[in-house]
Structures are given as C-alpha cells and as structure tokens.
Amino acid sequence: MSITLVWAREPIPTGPSVFLAGPTPRLGGDVESWRPAAVEALAEQWTGPGPLTVLTPESRGGKRAAHYDDQVGWETAARKAATAVLFWIPRDLRTLPGFTTNVEFGLDAGSGRAVLGCPPDCPNPERNRYLIYVAREHGVPVRETLHETATAALALVAAATRHGEL
C-alpha cells in the first residue's frame, strides 16, 4: 500500500501514522540518515486499507526551521498525534548521540504507542541499556533491527485500527 511522507513543520494529517524518532544527522555531516531505510521498511510491510502517514522530524530539502521552538513544537505535536512512535537509536556518541531522543523516549515510554529499536552492533550499544530497561518496565516492544522495529510499530497501528482508535 501507499506511504505519505510528512516532513518537519508540514501539516499533520489524521489517520494511521508512525513518527520516526531517533537521532538526526547534522546537516553537512558525513553521516547518512537512517530514516529513508525506515520509510522503506514501513512501506514494504504496510498492508492497511489506506495510506500510512510517516512523520519525519527531518526537513524537506534540508531547510532548517527559522526558530528552534517551531521545530520542537512540531515534533512534540507529531509524536502526540502519531498512532505509533518508532524509536531507532543506532547510538554513536561521536556522530549520532541522541541526547534529545533520550528525553523524548522518556516522555513516550508510558504512552502505549512507542517501540524501541537498538541495534546491538552500533558504536555505543552500552549507552542504550537504560532505555531498554525503561522500555521493558513500560511494556514497550524492544527490537534489534530496523525491519523488526518497523514491524512492531505497524503492529501498534494495526491494534489501534482494530480497537477503533483511528
């Protein structure tokens, strides 16, 4: 089925959606974003009756927000509106530290809409141990590959659909 990609600060539609939470590479750096692979994994697996909206905190065309609060406000609203919040944390303290992601996960862990993906082969997997602990305390699914994390996020979307929450 189809995917509708919504970039940072664009209008947030209603309907089934997944927010892609996790560290964002810095503009002009040499680290590629993991989000295109996440969109691909979601698109491959989505079988819902209509389109799935994927909300990304990255900016269309790399255009940054004029004001920090505009970006943070949009991300907060998008995470709150999302049917599922997919956290992917390929922790690398040098290039993808994810410090903001830690706070966001703490805010969303008890929502019933979060999934946590932490690859064991990332540069600093030991820095994800506490998040994994918190996830388990809150019943958040924990996965080790991006594909499995996408599967878990779509299971939350399917459950919300079955329960008439969408």
Rank of each mutant, 00 (worst) to 15 (best):
Met1Tyr: 07
Ile3Cys: 04
Thr4Phe: 00
Leu5Tyr: 05
Val6Ile: 14
Ala8Ile: 10
Ala8Val: 04
Arg9Ser: 06
Pro13Glu: 14
Pro13Gln: 14
Gly15Asn: 05
Ser17Gln: 03
Val18Gly: 02
Phe19Ala: 07
Ala21Ile: 06
Pro23Asp: 08
Pro23Ser: 06
Pro23Ala: 09
Pro23Lys: 12
Pro25Tyr: 12
Arg26Gln: 11
Leu27Thr: 04
Leu27Phe: 02
Gly28Phe: 09
Asp30Tyr: 06
Asp30Ser: 14
Val31Asn: 03
Val31Tyr: 02
Glu32Ser: 11
Glu32Cys: 08
Ser33His: 07
Ser33Thr: 15
Ala37Asn: 07
Ala38Lys: 09
Val39Arg: 15
Ala41Val: 08
Ala41Ile: 07
Ala41Glu: 15
Ala43Cys: 05
Glu44Val: 09
Trp46His: 13
Thr47Arg: 15
Gly48Thr: 10
Pro49Gln: 12
Pro49Trp: 05
Gly50Tyr: 15
Pro51Met: 04
Pro51Asp: 15
Leu55Met: 13
Leu55Gln: 10
Leu55Gly: 09
Thr56Asp: 15
Thr56Pro: 08
Pro57Phe: 04
Glu58Thr: 12
Ser59Gln: 14
Arg60Cys: 01
Gly61Glu: 12
Gly62Glu: 06
Gly62Pro: 06
Arg64Asn: 02
Arg64Trp: 03
Asp69Asn: 02
Asp69Phe: 02
Gln71Pro: 00
Gln71Arg: 02
Val72Cys: 00
Val72Ala: 04
Gly73Asp: 01
Trp74Phe: 12
Thr76Pro: 01
Lys80Ala: 15
Ala81Gln: 05
Ala82Gln: 14
Ala84Lys: 08
Ala84Glu: 10
Leu86Thr: 07
Trp88Cys: 04
Trp88Ser: 07
Pro90Val: 09
Pro90Met: 05
Arg91Thr: 10
Arg91Asp: 03
Asp92Thr: 05
Leu93Cys: 02
Leu93Arg: 07
Leu93Met: 10
Thr95Met: 03
Leu96Val: 08
Gly98Asn: 04
Phe99Cys: 00
Thr101Pro: 07
Asn102Val: 08
Phe105Val: 05
Gly106Thr: 08
Leu107Met: 03
Gly112Tyr: 06
Ala114Phe: 05
Leu116Ala: 03
Cys118Asn: 02
Pro119Phe: 00
Cys122Asp: 07
Pro123Ala: 13
Arg127Trp: 01
Arg129Asn: 03
Arg129Tyr: 00
Tyr130Thr: 12
Ile132Arg: 13
Ile132Tyr: 02
Ala135Glu: 06
Ala135Phe: 10
His138Gly: 09
Pro141Glu: 03
Glu144Phe: 06
Ala150Met: 08
Ala155Gln: 15
Val157Trp: 04
Ala159Arg: 15
Ala159Ile: 01
Ala159Met: 01
Thr161Arg: 15
His163Leu: 00
His163Arg: 14
Leu166His: 04
